[in-house]
Design a protein around this nucleic acid. Sequence first.
DNA 1: GCGATGAATCGAAGAGTATCGATATGATAT
DNA 2: ATATCATATCGATACTCTTCGATTCATCGC
Lengths: 113, 113
Amino acid sequence: MATRTASSPDTSAHLLEVFKALANPVRLQVLQWLRDPEANFPVHEGIADPHEVGVCVSHIQGRLGLAQSTVSSYMAALERAGLVVSTRVGKWTHYRRDEERIAQFTAELGDVL
Amino acid sequence: MATRTASSPDTSAHLLEVFKALANPVRLQVLQWLRDPEANFPVHEGIADPHEVGVCVSHIQGRLGLAQSTVSSYMAALERAGLVVSTRVGKWTHYRRDEERIAQFTAELGDVL
DNA sequence: GCGATGAATCGAAGAGTATCGATATGATAT
DNA sequence: ATATCATATCGATACTCTTCGATTCATCGC
């Protein structure tokens, strides 16, 4: 008999943080865009390797059409939830998805849902 | 080359509604409890088949220790998100997980995350 | 060091959510 | 029809979230 046990407090806290981050249409949209950066954003030439650092936040902001401060706090929320990683290269901050953490979230979700 | 396309508006709306429903610790807890009703709730004898209708909301409320109205609105949110189904048997309302819709959510999530 | 640029942080206002108690609605027994 | 019980809905309050513009912090070029 396989009794299903409740998830640990850490797991639930992580799940909650991710749910909260994604329970906003804009942040969900950004994470989707970041699945295919080349298709959704211009390449930021000569600044950094896009495969390594991802997309410049100014491009994300441009595409969203929201205030710079809003986009900054949104990306911070995604990063706090472990869904993206930020890399600063000079004045430029880039964000890419953290596929490992996303896979971890998916695994945790399978244990809980 | 497999280009990843954006999800449809209906899919995103559904995902959002689920994220919002689960972005609350109490509702997440209830959904986890409902994975294994027998382990988490007393059987409501002679009212209905628990495998068919699930758990009586009064038991959910008793275990949560929240106001009746709060629990009622929470279960409504879970149902609106398609995660549970309610069945009224006389005066008693029962909730069970909607495993099909949950599986659909998981599939959609895999397409989007 | 200064000025310009990029991004994080702050503060504020309006909208949304969590939660309660009160009330309305629905079901049942008499 | 009436009283009781179960639950949905309503209204209110406190808290959180969304979003903006202003400000501060970090980086760069001169």
